[in-house]
Design a protein around this nucleic acid. Structure first.
Lengths: 246, 246
DNA sequence: AAAGGCAGTATGTCCTATCAATCGAACATA
DNA sequence: TATGTTCGATTGATAGGACATACTGCCTTT
């Protein structure tokens, strides 16, 4: 059952070969060339078809398995997951998500200060006593409708931040431009009801449901760069993710 | 800077070598032998110290990077993430999580039926018209306090389920015993306020905040085995996870 | 006809080997 | 002094081979 997924591999491209394969198979799945439930050729044949080594092919398939598009079973084979899977939850910012989605998010900076970190912030960002941080609250709107209320604390020894930047682009964009390479974030998602401060800002009724998210992000040098408490209107936002068995 | 993380690798063990390394480094981090922020020896030296090949060592470190315990930087090295990271969100059930946590969860089966799947369920489980499913609602308590209200639909062509089983153990345990190997799940987390049906069952005030979760789980043959809508008391439950940059 | 064993097939693990890309610091130069 | 520049160190990518293990279906045996 040779399913010709005529991918073209460009060896002069700076994109790693395994990643080209990932993209090729992803698009084959999305275009329907590889329908849900269909079986792929075995790793060795696929590698031979594309003139790749088996480890390279396996690395590509590993990624696809981890991202939830494929399932593998020893002795049997590899097949496309039957249902439409969603993108796994990746390390990205709300601003990026909305922008990639074609929306045009806007940001109101509600407060901005450069202050000495309190104990909780020092704990979250692993800062010594007396260290200063940027502290600000923002209201994110999309299509004129408020979506999220965000409060953040950012260490100040990486790049400087001002109010104008925060209005124009997302926090993660600013920090990336400042040379920060994010590697991971730990976050906690919960729920609460809108209080009298949040409700009018989000143009919601007091007592309506909000999704809460607390996040601390770490860069490639191991520093805790940023921590924040965000709330989202529950009727406009939820977290989608794909979990993969290890 | 040779940090002797005197791991012992047992080549006769059925546990893969790379996984032994993962466990060894994990425990070294948790016991403080590898303090946060410390740098590991380079991959080649580590591999030599443990008499492993570099790819095997790399595979182990890949897992640790993906799980958020290590950060790597080309040309520089690998170091332990400074903060205490939480376990990444894995494919597990609430029952397992609570049991592993030392709690003793109990389950009240509120309703149980074996019915023809409605359209939404057929869509979620990719079932043909006329297929039957198990449908049930459960109330999960821990320490006598209600925590979660769960409604599930399970395809009936894998293993049979009855009310007694559901009272005694978690759904995932039943299905695993029935030969199901879960591979992935896609889920969506949001928020709502407790309605008049949910509130008394959860012993919460109507209008209090609930965390909502919808999940569909897929097994190693690509079948959508189970889908469910769960709500949790927001004051007792939240989702913690670690996101890793790809 | 049912049960058990066997072989084929596919993924899982592990190895040696080599080159590329990138970072940081030491060094040389204007 | 300030600014490039080179180079060692380290991770990233790719190749190809060997053997292990698990699943499926077929065939044999009872």
């Amino acid at each position: 059952m040779a399913n010709q997924l005529n991918l073209s591999i460009d060896r002069s491209s700076p994109v790693p070969l395994y990643h080209q394969v990932v993209q090729g198979i992803e698009s084959a799945i999305h275009t329907g060339l590889l329908p849900p439930g269909s079986r792929l050729d075995n790793e060795i044949d696929l590698a031979a078809q594309l003139n790749l080594s088996r480890p390279t092919m396996r690395k590509a398939m590993d990624e696809l398995v981890r991202s939830g598009l494929l399932v593998r079973k020893r002795g049997v084979g590899t097949q496309v997951v039957s249902s439409q899977v969603r993108r796994p939850l990746e390390l990205s910012s709300l601003f990026d998500d909305l922008s990639n989605n074609g929306s045009k998010p806007t940001t109101d900076v509600l407060s901005f200060s450069h202050i000495e970190a309190d104990e909780a912030t020092r704990e979250a960002l692993q800062l010594p006593a007396g260290a200063k941080v940027y502290h600000f609250t923002r209201l994110r709107k999309v299509g004129g409708k408020p979506l999220a209320l965000m409060e953040n604390w950012v260490r100040d020894d990486i790049t400087s931040i001002d109010e104008a930047q925060l209005s124009a682009q997302g926090l993660y964009g600013i920090l990336r431009n400042g040379g920060v390479n994010f590697r991971l974030a730990s976050q906690r998602i919960g729920a609460m009801v809108a209080n009298d401060y949040q409700a009018p800002l989000l143009e919601a009724e007091p007592g309506s449901a909000l999704v809460t998210m607390e996040r601390t992000a770490v860069d490639d040098t191991g520093r805790n760069v940023e921590t924040g408490h965000h709330v989202y209107r529950a009727d406009s936002y939820s977290f989608e993710m794909t979990l993969v068995q290890r």
